[in-house]
Design a protein around this nucleic acid. Structure first.
Length: 254
DNA sequence: CATCATGTTATAAT
DNA sequence: CATTATAACATGAT
C-alpha cells in the first residue's frame, strides 16, 4: 500500500539506539513498507511488512518528521528511512529519545504489557486508589510523572492536573481521601482528553483559563487568582504552582 | 560562564 | 523484597 523503504541510514553509535540491534533494524526495514501505527502514552509503534516493528520515544527533544527527498542527514539525524519521495527522519540533539526494533507476528511482548492509559476503560478510580496506596509517601506530582501509572502525562500535564486539583505538587499520596482520589481520576482524564483534542490534533492551545500557557516562563500570575506563580524543583523537575489556589486543606477536598 | 529544558533509568539508600 | 531519592545522560537556548 505505502511506499517501500529504499535506504536505511542509522547512526549506530547514537545513544538513541541503546539496547537496539541496529544491524537487524537495517536488515529488516530495508525494502519494507509501513503497515500500521499506534501510540501508547509517549510512545509510538510502527509495523512494517515482514513482521518488523519500530518503536519510537521522542524523549524531550526528539522529533519525527517527513522530509522531501533527497534528504541530507543533519548532525542529529539518528535514523532516516528513505523512500522514493519522502524520508522519515528521527532527529534528537539530546539523545534522550529511544528507538527499538523487534520482529514477530504481533506487537512485541513489552508493548502488549503496557499499563492502561488514562482514557482506557480499565483506567479506573480503583486503579488510581491502588497506585496511591502503593506509594503513600510520594509527592503526588512525582507519581503523576510515573509512566507505569499515568502513561503520557508529562511535566506540564502534571502541573496542570495539580493546579486543577487545587493541591500543591508536594502533597503526599497518603493524604488523599476517597473523594479526592475520584477527583484525581477525573482530572487526569479531563486534562488528557482536552490535550488530545487540542494539542494532539493541530497543536492548538488548551483553554486560556488553564495553567498551561503561564507555566512555561517565570514571572506569570496564576490565571485563577492573580498570585505570582511559584517555580521550584521537585524530583529534579520544575514544578510550577500557585501558592494561594493550591493549598492542602479540607477546603480543596471538593 | 551559569542555568535551564515537553524525560527516563541505573544505582544507591531507606 | 518494596519503595524512595538522586545522578547521569548530551546538547542547545537564554
Amino acid at each position: 500500500m505505502g511506499r517501500a523503504v529504499t535506504v536505511v541510514h542509522a547512526n549506530k553509535k547514537s545513544r538513541v539506539f541503546r539496547g537496539c540491534d541496529v544491524a537487524a533494524l537495517k536488515m529488516g526495514l530495508a525494502g519494507a513498507k509501513l503497515k500500521t501505527s499506534r501510540t501508547h502514552g509517549k510512545q509510538m509503534l510502527f509495523e512494517f511488512s515482514g513482521g518488523c516493528w519500530l518503536a519510537v520515544h521522542l524523549g524531550m527533544t526528539g522529533e519525527l518528521t517527513a522530509k522531501a527527498e533527497p534528504h541530507e542527514p543533519g548532525k542529529h539525524d539518528h535514523l532516516v528511512l528513505h523512500t522514493k519521495s519522502l524520508a522519515l527522519v528521527f532527529t534528537d540533539p539530546r539523545q534522550f529519545g529511544a528507538l527499538r526494533f523487534c520482529q514477530g507476528k504481533t506487537p512485541p511482548a513489552w508493548w502488549r504489557a503496557l499499563p492502561p492509559q488514562p482514557m482506557d476503560d480499565d483506567f479506573t478510580p480503583e486503579r488510581v486508589r491502588e497506585i496511591l496506596r502503593r506509594h503513600t509517601r510520594q509527592p503526588l506530582k512525582a507519581l503523576l510523572l510515573d509512566q507505569r501509572y499515568f502513561p503520557g502525562v508529562g511535566n506540564w500535564m502534571a502541573d496542570e492536573i495539580m493546579w486543577q486539583m487545587k493541591l500543591p505538587p508536594h502533597t503526599v499520596a497518603r493524604s488523599l481521601v476517597d473523594i479526592q482520589v475520584r477527583k484525581l481520576w477525573r482530572t487526569v482524564r479531563k486534562v488528557c482528553a482536552v490535550a488530545l483534542k487540542t494539542i494532539g490534533v493541530d497543536w492548538s492551545d488548551p483553554p486560556r483559563s488553564w495553567l498551561f500557557k503561564y507555566r512555561w516562563a517565570r514571572g506569570h500570575d496564576c490565571p485563577r487568582c492573580g498570585t505570582k506563580l511559584v517555580y521550584e524543583t521537585l524530583r529534579g523537575r520544575t514544578a510550577c504552582w500557585c501558592p494561594v489556589c493550591q493549598k492542602s486543606s479540607k477546603a480543596s477536598r471538593c
